[in-house]
Computed example of a mutant assay.
Amino acid sequence: MMKTVTKPRQIKMKYMDRLPTVISCCFCCFLRAGTVMIAVFSFIIGVLFAPNVSHTHGFWDLNPVLSNYGIMTEMSAQMTIGIASIMLCIVSVLLLVGACCNIPVLIEIYQWGAIMYSSTVVLMFFVLAVFCFFVHTNCYVAGAVLVFLIVCDVLLTAYFIIVTNSLRMSLQFLSSSDIVI
């Protein structure tokens, strides 16, 4: 009689599982508290840029940079940033619920939403910086500020994703093991 050997169950690693992890947020608070702070901060950032959807000037007024290229370009840039900001507000609320209620799937939705938001903002700010450096000759300072904002956005988003990923992975580990706290 032959024995059949079963292969051990392979766990499929997600892309986010390969990211580095941290044990605390900002070197001083627990992951859950840090994730709640990240959710509130992301929501506030989303609210700052969201008025651009209604064509009222929100935190950013694009008139000085795109004034020579027509109202349609200006409106589409503002709408893009505004819609991405509304999406950031929605995924920030999902992150808050996921962190408070121990739901790792909602935390992962925030992570992908933050990546999409950051990519959109980086693309829009890069286009505006190119206009500032190469089209308009008198707004080099605005272009430099936009490049600085791009760097800050990328670094902040990367840190936020690492912290939230650490909480998500710890929640998944605790739910899969037989540890009783």
Rank of each mutant, 00 (worst) to 15 (best):
A158D: 02
F49C: 05
I23K: 13
T21L: 11
L174S: 07
V122K: 01
D178E: 08
Y159G: 05
M75F: 13
T137S: 12
V36F: 01
V122C: 12
M1P: 04
A158V: 07
T120A: 09
L66C: 03
E74I: 04
D61V: 00
C29T: 14
S42K: 06
A50R: 09
V154L: 09
N52F: 01
C152V: 14
V97C: 04
H55A: 13
L128S: 08
K3A: 14
F49Q: 01
V163R: 02
C139R: 15
T21Q: 13
V163G: 01
S85H: 00
F27G: 11
L167R: 04
I162T: 02
L66R: 02
F148Y: 09
L94Y: 06
C152N: 11
V145Y: 01
V130K: 04
C28R: 09
S170C: 02
L96S: 02
F59D: 06
F160E: 09
A142E: 14
Q172A: 04
P51L: 01
I109Q: 07
V22R: 13
V22M: 15
M2S: 11
N102I: 00
C26A: 08
V154I: 14
V105M: 11
I86R: 01
T157C: 05
I83M: 07
I181M: 12
Y140T: 09
I103C: 01
F41L: 15
M37R: 14
I38K: 06
A39R: 09
F59W: 14
L62Y: 11
D61Q: 00
V5E: 12
C29Y: 09
R18W: 11
L106D: 03
C89G: 09
C25S: 15
F43M: 08
M2Q: 14
V36A: 08
A99I: 05
V121Q: 10
G58M: 03
A99R: 06
V122P: 04
T120K: 01
T137H: 15
S54A: 12
V127M: 11
L48T: 14
K12I: 15
M75G: 03
S119E: 03
I81P: 02
L146D: 02
A129P: 03
I90W: 02
A129M: 10
L123I: 09
T80M: 11
L106I: 06
L128M: 12
T73N: 11
G143K: 05
T4P: 01
Y159T: 05
M72K: 15
M124D: 05
A142G: 08
V47G: 02
I45W: 10
A114W: 04
L128H: 08
V135S: 11
K7C: 02
I107F: 06
L62E: 06
M79P: 00
R32K: 15
V36P: 00
G113P: 00
M116W: 07
I179K: 12
I90D: 01
C100H: 05
V122H: 00
L149N: 13
S24V: 01
